[in-house]
Nucleic acid binder design. Structure first.
Lengths: 346, 346
DNA sequence: ATGAAAGCGCTAACAG
DNA sequence: CTGTTAGCGCTTTCAT
């Protein structure tokens, strides 16, 4: 066999016995509840330490909290999700809460399944990163367990939301390029196959922000949006289409860095120098954007702040806040080597 | 207030009532246990569907399994960890098991804390990715909960291990470069600050594999190892040291792709063309390695297979296998644009 | 301030 | 084959 049978867990009964008090007292100390004398509290604490007591989460779950927060990940490959996780866990350091991540996949069904699994496991609250679900479904979940939604614009009374301000992000890029002298600035966006998120999705808001910013700069007729996908391949395809235009754009604003990488490849293949012949900007400021051979101008959304905010809001909800909150985190533009003045700048 | 109080959960008692049977019968159907007639089974199934019953994991945890497997992540930024996760979840599709990921951080303390948290939450088994703990500590954990360790060489009777065959991986690189005509092939490895993993760590095995392969090719005097860290900065630093040698290497094998990116930067700054003046190879085959401006020759460890294997082994353990297993997954070499014949090839 | 005791939803003997 | 029942470890009234 594997090894001798697993040693029995230390329970509050053991602690109570050791400290010479009741289990109720131990439970109260554990929860920091009212009605225990300092002396008894000290005795219990000591007994817990001596015995190496650790509360059994499942048992707690039967009556009270589990001190477990779930994070439903829609995409484990999302380049800034580590930042969000770091923000979440960082915010929770020093509290009793533990964070568990659930890979939800990119389909509505699998995401719903993971969310249910988290609810079934009595998580005290759940953070959903870019969920592909309708607001109605989200609201339904929120009646069971407090939730905070990251990355979906559009708020609801039932839950809190944290989003990057994609309108501002798009404007930062357009303004930067327009300031450099570009007039034909094209945009590559992501085409939703699913029907769920719609106008609430970051890509939709970025595209709309792009249009607004172009108009605001008096570049309405320079607006040119191509919808492929936020992948390297999607960026490549989009760029190929754009570069085949009779009057090709002098700058391409890709709605995501991965797509911008594809744009760079297309430019390279077309023999266009960057930023000499074509300026390229992305969104997300993923790790490699800063690396030398790439050096991509990009919009940085502070994943750390987003994660920390989400965690804070979730704990507030769990502890009783009723009113709904929508927190918008401002992005910043990181200018690097892929953007410069257009070639024919007079 | 938020909303009306959350609707009470549907329990097996509700299902039993609806189906006109005992709770024991429902429990048996739930677990697919012996001793239920097909007719009763059908009735119970129907009642469960009608009521939308979902088992309460915490309650199950009090007596039996939770059907939850944990994956302790030592580094959420690890570029191939998404592959591992995909392999794990893919292997579990169609089973009742759910996978939950725990960000353990890179310190022994925090990793142990996360592992404990998973045990306290009654997970049926845990996969540990590159844990920074001694084999003794790992064995201790294994007495409580079945575990599978990924990324640590050196097996133990108490748990199963899945590793990439780093000796083979290093040999693939050395052979490839030697075949091209290189003789002074240097290696950049990662220096462990901690004391935990030691010779079991992938970096140590890769370095050792490199030395073996060099000797096997009769290039013993070309051996040159520099220990910095597996980061872009570490690769850059290592390359700077190596390129300052009187007889500088004609090829650098970085123990990780991120470090290889730093090597590329150093080469670029030194005015060396790649692969003309310097060949560069990495390890891990991270996503961007394939992208055009990089096109890095790298060793691909099949994260998908590693994850799937780990999940399979874990389930086997949970279901009773006693004997310990060490599974070694063979990597493959992906040759791209950063390696070529040395300049002075006669 | 303290403790006894009744569950929470499920599983697993055990009895019928 | 089917149902009864005693817990699992903890929280939470409710007496004392």
């Amino acid at each position: 066999m594997t090894t001798g049978s697993a040693p029995r867990r230390v329970t509050i009964a053991d602690v109570a016995g050791r400290a010479g008090v009741s289990t109720a007292a131990v439970s109260k100390v554990l929860r920091g509840a009212y009605g225990v004398s300092p002396g008894m509290r000290a005795k219990v604490r000591e007994a817990m330490d001596e015995l190496g007591y650790r509360p059994h989460a499942a048992a707690r779950a039967m009556r009270g909290r589990t001190y477990t927060l779930g994070v439903m990940l829609s995409d484990t490959r999302n380049p800034f999700f580590p930042d969000i996780i770091e923000g979440v866990t960082g915010q929770l350091v020093g509290t009793e809460y533990q964070v568990l991540l659930g890979p939800g996949g990119d389909e509505p069904r699998s995401q719903a399944r993971m969310t249910d699994a988290m609810i079934d496991r009595s998580m005290d609250g759940i953070i959903l990163i870019s969920p592909v679900m309708s607001s109605t479904e989200l609201a339904a979940i929120a009646t069971t367990t407090p939730i905070v939604v990251i990355g979906r614009h559009g708020s609801a009374a039932e839950y809190d939301s944290v989003v990057d301000d994609d309108v501002v992000g798009a404007r930062l890029v357009v303004d930067h390029l327009a300031d450099l002298g570009h007039r034909r600035i094209a945009h590559i966006t992501h085409l939703d196959r699913g029907r769920a998120s719609g106008a609430d999705s970051p890509q939709a808001v970025r595209a709309e922000g792009y249009r607004q910013a172009m108009r605001a700069r008096g570049l309405a007729e320079g607006v040119d949006v191509v919808a492929t996908s936020f992948t390297e391949e999607g960026g490549y395809e989009g760029a190929r289409q754009l570069l085949a235009r009779p009057a090709r754009p002098t700058a391409i604003f890709a709605g995501a860095d991965v797509a911008a990488l594809g744009v760079l490849r297309a430019a390279y293949e077309a023999g266009l120098s960057v930023p000499g012949d074509l300026s390229v900007a992305g969104y997300d400021n993923i790790g490699i954007a800063s690396l030398n051979p790439i050096s991509l101008t990009s919009v940085d959304q502070d994943g750390h702040v987003i994660g920390a905010t989400a965690a804070r809001l979730l704990v507030e909800r769990i502890e009783g806040r009723g009113r709904s909150v929508l927190s918008s985190v401002s992005p910043t533009l990181v200018v690097r080597g892929t953007t410069g003045p257009p070639a024919g700048r007079e």
